[in-house]
């Protein structure tokens, strides 16, 4: 092999960069604890099912925003025909007041930065509820 040092050095750099997530995760040692959002006590039932909410809450919130802000219609009829007041502070945050333990856990894990709080106020946070993993 010609230029053995340079070629093997280059390949070593390539392999290090290519397997970067492996040793980064090993060095950080936090991968074994995926996030677990804390449901505030007494608020187990959301406007839709838990599976639906965990997957589609962002679309629902967008629909709510358009309906409330653009059409002035603040009534949401859920799939089980219950009606809810469309309001982030009045409805969502009433049951999920713990932003750091509820919203942020998955958002930080998946590195998504929703811009709800660009306009909305973050209400005073309740004391941390123990439960779930960080």
């Amino acid at each position: 092999m010609f230029d053995k040092g340079k070629v093997l050095g280059g390949l070593a750099i390539f392999l290090c960069l290519g397997t970067f997530p492996l040793w980064y995760i090993a060095a950080q040692g936090k991968a074994a604890y995926p996030p677990d959002p804390v449901i505030y006590p007494g608020s187990e039932q959301c406007v839709e099912s838990t599976e639906y909410m965990s997957k589609y809450h962002m679309q629902l919130l967008q629909q709510w925003r358009d309906q409330a802000v653009r059409q002035g219609d603040r009534v949401y009829i859920a799939s089980d025909n219950k009606t809810y007041d469309i309001s982030l502070t009045g409805t969502c945050l009433k049951c999920h007041p713990n932003k750091a333990e509820f919203c942020d856990r998955c958002h930080t894990y998946n590195d998504v930065s929703p811009n709800c709080y660009n306009c909305h106020n973050i209400p005073p946070q309740p004391a941390e509820v123990l439960g779930g993993t960080k």
């Binding site: 980064y24 995760i25 930080t108 590195d111 930065s113």
Partner: peptide, 29 residues
Amino acid sequence: HLRFFTEPVFPPATWLTNLDSLFQFSLAT
């Protein structure tokens, strides 16, 4: 895509994502 492969998320990946998402379309980035 490093945000899917690193935990906690590799900070430069977040910086680059923020820079890349300067514009917003509807609510989604």
